[in-house]
Amino acid sequence: YKELDVHLRRMESGFGFRILGGDEPGQPILIGAVIAMGSADRDGRLHPGDELVYVDGIPVAGKTHRYVIDLMHHAARNGQVNLTVRRK
């Protein structure tokens, strides 16, 4: 696995990616679609299928989808987010 730290600034449309997973206990949280011309797309480092490991330094492995969405909403209010993702 390769770990990447990604800092994104929120645009009008948000951070520019969707979150998948976390529906079953222990299921990984994954990056879903990366939205064209969004913040994540312009940054270029997030890829669909990347596993989300940390959101603003908070571990999200094994957490629920709702928990991660709530963290992302909090980050959106701050206008930026630091993510750590893991890729095979």
Rank of each mutant, 00 (worst) to 15 (best):
M37F: 10
D70F: 08
Y1L: 04
K88P: 15
F17R: 00
G21K: 08
L83F: 03
K63N: 08
R18G: 09
V68K: 03
S39R: 03
Q80I: 09
P25A: 10
E51F: 02
I58E: 11
R66S: 14
P28R: 09
V85K: 03
L4G: 00
I29A: 05
G14V: 01
Y54A: 14
G16T: 00
L52I: 10
G49Y: 06
Q27W: 06
N82D: 14
D5N: 15
R87S: 11
A75Y: 03
G16M: 00
G57C: 06
E51D: 02
D50I: 01
H74K: 15
A61M: 13
D50R: 01
G62Q: 07
D56W: 00
D50P: 00
A61D: 09
I58G: 02
V81S: 00
E51P: 00
V6C: 05
Y67V: 10
H65Q: 13
G14L: 01
D5S: 15
H7Q: 13
Y67H: 11
G79Y: 06
S13R: 10
A61E: 14
D70K: 13
M72I: 15
I19T: 07
L71M: 10
D5A: 10
R66K: 14
I35D: 15
Q27C: 09
R86C: 06
I58H: 14
G79D: 09
L4Y: 12
H65T: 11
I35G: 09
S39H: 04
E3M: 11
F15P: 01
I31G: 02
R87V: 03
A36I: 04
P25H: 07
R86I: 05
P59K: 15
H74E: 15
R18D: 15
D56S: 03
Q80N: 12
R45C: 06
N82E: 10
R42G: 05
N82M: 11
R86Y: 08
H73N: 13
E24A: 12
V60L: 09
L20W: 09
R45P: 04
T64N: 11
Y67P: 01
V53D: 04
G49T: 03
G16A: 00
K63V: 07
G57Y: 06
K2M: 11
Q80A: 12
P48V: 14
Y67S: 10
I29L: 11
D70N: 13
M72C: 06
V60M: 10
V34K: 05
V81D: 01
I69R: 13
L83N: 02
L8N: 02
F17E: 01
L52T: 00
E12R: 09
E51L: 05
L30F: 14
D50Q: 04
M72T: 03
T64K: 10
V85C: 05
R66Y: 08
M72Q: 01
A36S: 13
T84Y: 06
Y1V: 06
Y1S: 05
H74F: 11
I19S: 01
V34M: 09
S13P: 05
H73D: 15
Y1K: 05
F17A: 00
D70R: 11
F17Y: 01
K2A: 03
D50L: 00
D56Q: 05
D23I: 10
P59H: 14
I35R: 13
H73Y: 09
L4T: 05
D5M: 09
R9Q: 14
V81Y: 02
A40M: 04
H74Q: 15
S39K: 04
L8S: 02
H47G: 05
N78K: 12
L71R: 08
G49M: 08
G44H: 05
A40L: 03
G21D: 06
E12H: 09
D50A: 01
G49F: 06
D41G: 09
I29K: 06
Y54Q: 14
A75S: 07
Y1N: 06
I19M: 07
A75D: 03
L46F: 02
G62R: 08
R86A: 06
V60K: 00
D41M: 06
K2R: 07
L52N: 02
G57M: 05
E3K: 09
Q27N: 11
D41W: 11
P25M: 08
V85M: 03
V6L: 07
A33M: 06
L71G: 01
M37P: 08
S39L: 02
V85P: 00
N78W: 06
Y54V: 14
V34P: 08
G14D: 10
I69K: 15
R9H: 13
P28A: 08
A36Q: 10
M37Y: 11
G57L: 02
G79T: 04
I31D: 02
V68G: 00
F15S: 00
L4W: 07
L46A: 01
G16H: 01
F17N: 01
R45N: 11
K63G: 07
E3P: 00
E12F: 06
M11S: 14
T84H: 10
H47D: 06
H74V: 15
I31W: 02
G26S: 08
I19A: 02
L46D: 01
M72L: 14
F15D: 01
N78S: 09
Y1M: 07
A75C: 08
P59V: 09
F15A: 01
A61G: 11
L83R: 00
I69Y: 09
D5R: 11
G38A: 04
Q80Y: 15
V85E: 02
T64F: 04
R45A: 07
V53T: 12
A36R: 12
G57K: 13
P25W: 07
L20M: 13
Y54S: 15
A61S: 13
I69C: 13
P25G: 07
D41A: 13
D56K: 01
I58T: 12
L4M: 12
K2E: 06
K63I: 03
G22R: 08
G22W: 04
V6E: 04
L83T: 02
G79P: 02
R45L: 05
P28F: 01
T64S: 12
T64E: 09
A40C: 05
R18A: 06
G14A: 02
R42T: 08
G32C: 06
G26F: 05
V60S: 00
I31T: 00
V34I: 14
R42S: 08
E24S: 13
F17P: 02
E24D: 09
K63F: 06
D70A: 11
R66N: 12
G44Q: 06
E24L: 09
R77I: 13
L30R: 13
K63S: 09
L30A: 07
M72R: 00
L20S: 15
Y1Q: 03
H7R: 11
T64L: 09
G38D: 06
H74S: 13
P48Y: 08
I58L: 12
F15N: 00
G44W: 03
K63Y: 07
R18M: 06
H7M: 13
V6D: 03
E12T: 10
V60R: 00
H65S: 13
E3W: 08
L83H: 02
P59M: 14
H47V: 13
G32S: 13
R42K: 13
G32W: 04
H65Y: 14
V34F: 05
L20K: 15
R10Y: 15
E24K: 14
G38C: 03
N82L: 10
D70C: 08
Y54R: 14
F17K: 00
R66E: 14
I31K: 01
V81L: 08
G21T: 08
T64M: 10
R77H: 14
Q27D: 15
V85F: 02
G14E: 05
N82Y: 09
K2I: 13
I31F: 00
I29Y: 12
P48L: 09
D70E: 12
L71F: 03
